[in-house]
Amino acid sequence: MTVSTTPEADLSTWPTGRLLAVAARLVEQRWVAVLDGMGLTHAGLIALHTLRDGPLPQRTLAQRCQVTDQTMSRTLDRLARAGFVARAADPADGRRQLTRLTERGRAVHEQAVRAEPALLGGLGDDDAFRAGLLALITRLSASD
C-alpha cells in the first residue's frame, strides 16, 4: 500500500478550520523569513508595534503583548542588542525602567509594516478581508 504525501488537490473540500490553520502557517512562514532578514522576530515586531506610541515599562508592555514578564525581558534584550529599543530609568519612578523605540527601531517597524501587503498577496490592504478577520477574532475571543 502506498501512502500519498501530497495534499488533496481540491482545497474547496477542506474544512474551514483546516483552511485557517494552513493559511496561518503559510503567513507565519513568510513573516519569519522576512522578519529574519530585518533582524526581527515576530515577538519583536509585536513589541515594536506596541511601543510606537511612546515608552512603556516592561510589565505594561508584556501585558499589552499578552506575554509573561520573562518572555518580554528576553524579547527586549534581543531588540536592545539590535539597537531597536533603548531602556532608561523612569523619571517618575527611578526603580522602574521605560523602554522606547529608537530611530532604528521605528525604521525597521515601518519597513515591516510596508512588507506586509506583499506577504498576504495584497489581502492586507483589503478592508473587507481585514474586517472579517477582526470579526472572527473578536467572536472567538468573546467565547473564551
Rank of each mutant, 00 (worst) to 15 (best):
T2P: 12
V3D: 05
S4C: 08
T5K: 06
P7H: 13
P7T: 05
E8K: 09
A9P: 09
L11T: 13
T13E: 14
T16Y: 08
L20D: 07
V22S: 09
V22C: 09
R25Q: 15
R25S: 14
L26H: 13
W31C: 14
V32F: 15
A33D: 13
A33K: 10
L35A: 11
L35D: 06
D36G: 15
H42N: 07
A43Q: 11
A43G: 10
L45A: 06
A47W: 01
A47F: 02
H49D: 15
D53P: 02
G54F: 00
P55C: 00
L56K: 12
P57A: 13
R59L: 14
T60G: 06
L61M: 03
R64T: 02
R64K: 12
C65D: 05
T68G: 04
T68S: 11
D69A: 12
Q70K: 11
M72F: 03
M72K: 02
S73Y: 08
T75F: 04
D77G: 06
L79F: 01
R81I: 06
A82E: 08
G83I: 12
V85E: 00
A86N: 12
A88S: 15
A89M: 02
D90E: 02
A92T: 09
D93Q: 02
G94A: 13
G94E: 11
R96G: 05
L98E: 01
L98F: 03
T99G: 01
T102R: 00
R104T: 11
G105R: 00
G105L: 00
A107P: 03
A107V: 01
V108Y: 00
V108H: 00
H109W: 14
Q111M: 13
A112H: 03
A112E: 03
R114F: 09
R114W: 11
E116M: 15
P117A: 07
L119D: 01
L120T: 15
G121F: 01
L123S: 06
D125Y: 07
D126N: 15
D127P: 10
D127I: 12
F129S: 02
R130F: 10
L133A: 07
A135V: 10
A135S: 09
A135Q: 14
L136K: 03
L136S: 02
L140K: 07
S141D: 08
S141C: 04
S143T: 14
D144A: 10
